[in-house]
């Protein structure tokens, strides 16, 4: 709630003509906007340009932001839609993965196994597994688990239905554990 209040304070300041107040919003959201763009567009230079364009667009359209949703939700929807239209222009489609069926029990085992690995390796394996997911699933997982956006908010960002998001996130989580398991297994074999 505090975040929303903070954001609204700066948004109002920008609307009243204090352009510099926008730098607070850029500072706060630049990493996630860039991360989302990078997950979808892949190339850092494209992602950087897209992230810049997102903030410019947000500034231009700031008067149309009514405050009904979180500013972050509104901002991520600009990012997502701009990236999707860019990918459509380039006729690039999201990669797909085989649907891996893992039981909840196996998922728990994989989680315990992951936690037993060295702390410094955990992030590396997690990033490797995340990169293997289809691009749109990477975005969903990041928004839901990292950014704690609700299913409804993700639906506003992506335009997907809540039920579709629920299925995709559930499947993505299982795929992530499966991919993590593979990566960790590869590591064990390389050590032997």
């Amino acid at each position: 709630m505090m975040t929303k209040v903070d954001d609204l304070y700066y948004i109002e300041a920008v609307r009243k003509g204090d352009v510099q107040a926008f730098s607070f919003l850029v500072e706060k959201y630049q990493k996630l906007v860039y991360t989302l763009a990078l997950k979808l567009l892949k190339k850092p230079e494209d992602a950087e340009e897209m992230a810049q364009d997102t903030f410019i667009k947000a500034y231009q359209k700031l008067d149309s932001y009514e405050g009904k949703s979180k500013f972050s939700t509104w901002l991520y929807s600009i990012t997502y839609n701009a990236c999707i239209s860019e990918l459509r222009k380039r006729r690039i489609e999201f990669k797909s993965l085989d649907d891996r069926q893992i039981s909840d029990q196996d998922e728990q085992k994989m989680h315990d196994y992951y936690r037993e690995t060295k702390k410094e390796d955990q992030e590396k394996y997690l990033n490797l597994a995340l990169e293997k997911l289809p691009e749109d699933d990477q975005v969903l997982v990041t928004l839901y688990y990292y950014e704690s956006q609700s299913m409804d908010e993700i639906s506003m960002i992506t335009g997907l239905t809540v039920s579709n998001i629920k299925v995709k996130i559930h499947r993505a989580r299982k795929q992530m554990y499966s991919l993590l398991h593979e990566k960790l297994k590869e590591e064990v074999y390389s050590l032997l």
Binding site: Y34, T35, L126
Partner: peptide, 9 residues
């Protein structure tokens, strides 16, 4: 996931 660091521009 919360332990993952975001990419930086």
């Amino acid at each position: 996931m919360k332990e993952v660091r975001l990419d930086s521009p």
